[in-house]
Write a protein that binds this DNA or RNA. Structure first.
Length: 623
RNA sequence: GGGGACGUAGUUCAGUUGGUUAGAAUGCUGCCCUGUCACGGCAGAGGUCGCGGGUUCGAGCCCCGUCGUCCCCGCCA
């Protein structure tokens, strides 16, 4: 039989009571975490968001309460009414925050029972994700998940607080908006009122926030939900949250200072000191030094080692002399066996004409001096893994390769990114050996974060990546495509090369990366209609076409648009880093599977004929 | 769209070269137990080996297909 709550009110949470509360009469309400039944003596561990407190039932002291506790099972919801008692010296539990006390119950009320759960929220060991997602409410009861969402809340609050202090206004923008054929696939919402037309869920509030600048709001931000109908990854969900902001009259540095400010505040909110300002690197430098546009600074970058080989050496090794020769170094990995090296082969991308040398012993036999110089240049220490990456001479530079004064060509990028991706893969694989990632885990797990502030300078390595190329070359169509959305402003001094040498044009576009993860990106926008038109022209988009796609926006641009710019940061990814999680699903309350299914509510589902008819939709199903 | 890993008790997993009655731990149920805290002891229940087809005297194991979960490429900022 279940009991009524009656007028009972909670006096303390289950994580609150300490030695100095001994003697107090208390009412605890919570879930049965565990029950230890010793016959005439029963221990109930009562759990809520705040912690766990041991409740004792002594048959001799209270027969009725003891009898109730006998019926209690894991995840029952229970009220314990009684007195706080200091535990005897030999039964103090130092592993529990409330371990110095216990509550001697005079009355137990079972407020609700529970089916036997498919897995226990009391266990730390995690069940398989399919089960976790189906029974998400049980999964979310686990201490780890409760902690993740506390982190998420604190980070969000700190960001809101900081931006609000800096005069930013939080303004909401529509979920039901207009489909724009740029970027990702849209999620569509059919209109009932207008047959055959659709709203789209926003991939980001991009155009709205720019229009808010035109509207004179000066500083806008939003904790904004975004929707993209693309295939998922561990760090990609179909709906995700961005800290989206935009401001008028900014220099790039103005935006950096804002973001650094709220990042520092967000980290401080969870007890981590993050030094500012963040370092900066240009896109080209990032590619040269890390082979990737989201460098992980916790490990050494690439080293240019072309000089260690003579021209004839390069020829002997079948290395293309026109392309970069770089070394990657992973500390403390030790010498790899033949088998280990074989196993690593699939991690290297040879598709775009890059190759690598990982057998230094063999190299040393023919080129002893080169290896000596290699060790010098890379500052390698004993036991560091060194691998040389270069262009394969057998793959000839194709006519489509993009050569432009001062910029990296496609094939150069191919070599750098093959090296950069290999570096990342090997770093993941040998994480136990180099220990650079463990530093982050230690800070995340540090208990000192609750009481004070932990130094996060080695564990969290943010970096601004600036001056991305304005255009990307599409080898299939031979056309120049916008590397970002087409409202990104080019550098003013590169404007005259828009059509003559598009590859050389730098965008006023920047990314914030941290620990090898892209946290966010933004840009200084185009505020002049004539410049916008030039960009469309450079992209081969006719005036007519531009009007059809973005007419409303081009119209707005003509009514006194101030210079403006902004950024959007992935809140989920930020929280993921701070929670030490390896998937976004750990920091999103109700996430979707890799096939974009919600296993708990079972969505998506078919809908009734009637609903479809009202929406003027007829499904076309493949057999 | 493509590649890979996995799918056996509620859960986590083992299951030999294809062989007779599919195991362990944990959870669950019952009984016992006054200082446990992952309590302990005894007894017990619990299986469509994801699903469908095939090979075979015989399939959890081999083959084909299919579904689901995860990771990656493509895609996506």
């Amino acid at each position: 039989m279940l009991d009524f709550l009656g007028t009972l009110e909670r006096t303390h949470t289950c994580g609150e009571l300490r030695a100095q509360d001994a003697g107090k009469s208390v009412v605890l309400l919570g879930w049965v975490n565990r029950r230890r039944d010793h016959g005439n003596l029963i221990f109930l561990d009562l759990r809520d968001r705040y912690g766990i407190t041991q409740v004792v039932l002594d048959k001799e002291l209270s027969l009725a309460a003891h009898a109730k506790a006998e019926q209690a099972r894991p995840e029952y919801v229970v009220a314990a009414i009684g007195k706080v008692r200091l535990r005897g010296k030999d039964v103090v539990n130092p592993k529990m925050e409330t371990g110095e006390i216990e509550v001697v119950a005079s009355e137990i009320r079972i407020l609700n029972d529970a089916k036997v759960p498919p897995f226990s929220p009391a266990e730390e060991a995690i069940s398989n994700e399919e089960v976790r997602l189906k029974y998400r409410y049980l999964d979310l009861r686990r201490a780890e998940m409760q902690h993740n969402f506390e982190v998420r809340h604190k980070v969000t609050m700190a960001v809101r607080e900081y931006l609000s202090q800096q005069n930013f206004l939080e303004i909401e923008t529509p979920f039901m908006t207009r489909s724009t054929p740029e970027g990702a696939r849209d999620y569509l919402v059919p209109s009932r009122v207008h047959a055959g037309t659709f709203y789209a869920l926003p991939q980001s509030p991009q155009l709205f926030k720019q229009i808010l600048m035109i509207s004179g709001f000066d500083r806008y931000f939003q904790v904004a939900r975004c929707f993209r109908d693309e295939d998922l990854r561990a760090d990609r969900q179909p709906e995700f949250t961005q800290i989206d902001l935009e401001m008028t009259f900014p220099q790039q540095e103005t935006i950096f200072r804002m973001v650094e400010g709220f990042m520092k505040a967000a980290f401080a909110a969870v007890g981590i000191a993050l030094p500012t300002p963040f370092p900066q690197i240009t896109y080209d430098e990032a590619m040269r030094q890390f082979g990737i546009d989201k460098p992980d600074l916790r490990l050494p970058g690439l080293t240019d080692v072309k000089e260690i080989f003579s021209a004839s050496d390069l020829a002997t090794l079948a290395i293309d002399p026109a392309l970069p020769v770089v070394a990657l170094r992973i500390p403390k990995v030790g010498e790899l066996s033949r088998k280990e090296r074989d196993d690593n082969r699939p991690l290297f991308d040879t598709r775009k004409g890059a190759k690598y040398i990982d057998d230094l012993k063999r190299l040393e036999k023919s080129f002893p001096n080169a290896v000596v110089k290699l060790r010098e240049l890379t500052k390698a220490e004993e036991g560091d893994l060194l691998i040389i990456v270069a262009g394969d001479a057998a793959t000839h530079i194709q006519a489509s390769d993009t050569k432009s004064e001062g910029r990296l060509s496609e094939r150069e990028i191919a070599v750098y990114s093959a090296a950069g991706n290999f570096r990342v893969e090997l770093a993941k694989k040998y994480a136990d050996r180099h220990g650079a990632f463990a530093v982050t885990e230690q800070v995340v797990a540090s208990p000192d974060r609750r009481t004070g502030t932990v130094d996060g300078s080695a564990a969290f390595r943010p970096i601004w990546v600036t001056d991305f190329p304005m255009f990307e070359h599409d080898p299939e169509t031979g056309k120049w495509m916008p590397a970002h959305h087409p409202f990104t402003s080019p550098h003013e001094e590169d404007m005259d090369r828009l059509t003559s040498d598009p590859a050389s044009v730098r965008a006023r576009y920047y990314d914030l990366a941290m620990n090898g993860l892209e946290l966010g990106s933004g840009s200084i926008r185009i505020h002049r209609q004539d410049v916008q038109q030039q960009i469309f022209t450079a992209l081969g988009m006719s005036e007519q076409e531009a009007k059809e796609r973005f007419g409303f926006f081009l119209e707005a641009l003509q009514y006194g648009t101030p210079p403006h710019g902004g950024i959007a940061l992935g809140l989920d990814r930020l929280v993921m880093i701070l929670a030490g999680a390896s998937s976004l699903r750990e920091v999103i309350a109700f996430p979707k599977t890799a096939k974009a299914i919600d296993l708990m509510v079972d969505a998506p589902t078919p809908v009734s004929e009637q609903q479809l008819r009202e929406l003027h939709i007829r499904p076309v199903l493949k057999d």
